[in-house]
Every structure is written in structure tokens, then in C-alpha cells.
């Protein structure tokens, strides 16, 4: 148990309600709970750009003239979008882990002769385990978190690919024709004409995607990361005086209410910020929104 922040917390049973609360809300476990909000933000900070990258790749593949690549891109978008995302989360966390261990096993233990799948077990040699059995706790946690980030990137990459593909199609065709008339190669046309112009078309979809991504973060709990849902369940459950200095009945409703308020505030702030960005970006664009701005000023 960590030492308490307030000096009067040494004997909680004697305290008044307000002081009891201030002691209760600053215990070591509650600090871990507050830190886990950072985990959610960290996940978003990593997952959003990597999902965008996956999405860009997916959209490029879906536009490719080379047929197998085209099918790959379209299949990726269609399959991930047609299946519940939780199924993908649960699938990828095990599948990625087993895939990585399988590859390491093939490289590190080439003379292993037993089958890897024995009945209901997945057995690789010890030095191929990920993370290694003797590594520190933080490596295990980081590995779990990294798997979660990759899973989020793959799933939301398909959502983003769908948005970006639509945005690329929405850029007026005359722009592309003009570029071709100037003798630009397809590659130059793509990078210099299409990509800079597509963002204004992609922004509504991407804003929506950001909201969906925020609302998907509690699924981290299902991937085994100690996130806010984990701590809310852990701290909210009823506690008896035998195990803790702060006994209380079942408070899970209150804890989940706090999470609801956190998410509502988060999505509200995001909405306001994204609306401002949309207004700024549509300034001077040849779209309806840009036209409306031109007329008012």
C-alpha cells in the first residue's frame, strides 16, 4: 500500500464523509484508475494515425489497376466492415500473437520436430515465446498494448479506407484530366493533384470515424489491457472491511456513470473541435460548404 497523500488518512474508519471521500479517491488503486485514462488517450494517439495509414494503403489498393491488389483492397474493406468489430478484436489478438510466435519459432528453432498444434495446445519452443517467459511485467503489458494498437489499426483501417476511397473518387474528374493534359505521370497526378485535394471530402467521414474510434476504446478491456473499464469494475465491486480500509457496498453503477460522463465530455469536445476544423478547411473550396461561406462574407 502506498503512503496516503493526506496526513489525516491514516485511520479512515474515524473520518467524516468529506475527508473519507478525499482519502478514498486518492488511494493507490484510484491513482492507477486515473492513469488508465491516460492509457485510453495513448491508445487513441497511436491507433488513429496507424489506422489512417492502413486506410490510405487500403484505399490505394482498392484503386489499383493491378487486379489482385485491387481485390485485396476491396476484400479488406468489405470483410472487415461486414463483420462485427468485436469479433475482429477477439480474433486478431490471438491470431497476431500466434502468427508472430509461429514465425519466430520457424526462424529460431528450425530443428524442432513436433507439431505446433497438439490437440488444443499451441506449442512453440521457449525462446520463440512472445514475450519471453522471463521478461519483466512492463514488457508483457507493452506487448499486450502493442497488439491492441495493431488490432485497432487493422479494424479501423478498413473504415478509414472506405472513407478515403470515397474521397478520392469525389475529387472532380476535371482536375485529373487537367493534370494529364499537362503531361503528369499517374504517380505525379496521384500525389500532387489527388491527395492534396481529397482531404476536404474525406473530413466529414474521418470526423465520424474519430467518434467511432473514441467509442470503441472501452473494447480494450476485452483485449486484456487494464483500462478504465477494468478499474471501474475492480474498484466499484463491494468491499468488506476485512480486505480494505475503505469498505463500501456495490458502487459499480456510480463508477460506470463516471465513465459515461467522461465519454460524453470527450465526444462533445471532439465534436466542437472537428466542426471548427471543417469550417476552416472548407474555406475557399469549390464545395457547397465553401460556397456558403463565400456568400455570407
Amino acid at each position: 500500500m502506498r503512503s496516503a497523500i493526506f496526513s489525516f488518512c491514516s485511520d479512515p474508519a474515524t473520518l467524516e464523509t468529506f475527508q473519507w471521500m478525499s482519502c478514498y479517491l486518492t488511494t493507490g488503486k484510484h491513482m492507477a484508475f486515473y492513469v488508465s485514462f491516460g492509457t485510453v488517450l495513448l491508445l487513441l494517439a497511436f491507433a488513429a494515425p496507424s489506422a489512417l495509414l492502413f486506410g490510405f494503403g487500403g484505399a490505394m489498393a482498392a484503386r489499383a489497376r493491378f487486379l489482385p491488389l485491387n481485390w485485396l483492397g476491396r476484400g479488406y474493406i468489405a470483410i472487415v466492415r461486414g463483420v462485427p468489430d468485436i469479433a475482429f478484436f477477439l480474433f486478431f489478438v490471438i491470431a497476431l500473437d500466434q502468427g508472430l510466435e509461429y514465425l519466430r519459432h520457424k526462424v529460431k528453432c528450425p530443428d524442432w520436430d513436433q507439431p505446433i498444434r497438439q490437440g488444443n495446445d499451441f506449442i512453440v519452443c521457449d525462446i520463440a515465446k512472445l514475450p519471453l517467459g522471463n521478461s519483466a511485467q512492463w514488457i508483457h503489458e507493452t506487448y499486450g498494448f502493442a497488439l491492441a494498437v495493431v488490432t485497432f489499426a487493422i479494424v479501423f483501417g478498413a473504415f478509414a479506407a472506405n472513407v478515403l476511397y470515397g474521397a478520392m473518387q469525389a475529387v472532380p474528374h476535371a482536375q485529373i484530366e487537367t493534370a494529364e493534359a499537362y503531361g503528369l505521370t499517374p504517380r505525379q497526378t496521384f500525389w500532387r493533384i489527388l491527395v492534396p485535394q481529397m482531404w476536404t471530402y474525406a473530413l466529414p467521414g474521418l470526423s465520424n470515424l474519430w467518434m467511432v474510434l473514441i467509442k470503441a476504446t472501452p473494447l480494450l478491456f476485452l483485449l486484456g489491457v487494464e483500462d478504465i473499464v477494468y478499474w471501474a469494475k475492480e474498484l466499484g465491486g463491494s468491499k468488506t472491511a476485512n480486505f480494505t480500509a475503505y469498505p463500501h457496498p456495490d458502487w459499480r453503477t456510480q463508477y460506470f456513470l463516471a465513465l459515461l460522463v467522461f465519454y460524453l465530455a470527450f465526444t462533445k469536445v471532439s465534436e466542437v473541435v472537428l466542426n471548427r476544423i471543417t469550417t476552416r478547411l472548407s474555406h475557399g473550396q469549390a464545395t457547397l460548404a465553401g460556397e456558403a461561406q463565400r456568400k455570407t462574407t
Partner: peptide, 18 residues
């Protein structure tokens, strides 16, 4: 706003304990 602004996952947890 209440139902679109918060994750369904948390709504389930909250509703169940409620």
C-alpha cells in the same frame, strides 16, 4: 446526445449494474 455520445459497451455495463 446521451446515447450517441457514449459507447454502447459502457451503456451495457452501466445498465446492468443499475
Amino acid at each position: 446526445f446521451l446515447f450517441r455520445g457514449s459507447p454502447l459497451f459502457i451503456q451495457f455495463f452501466f445498465a446492468y449494474s443499475l
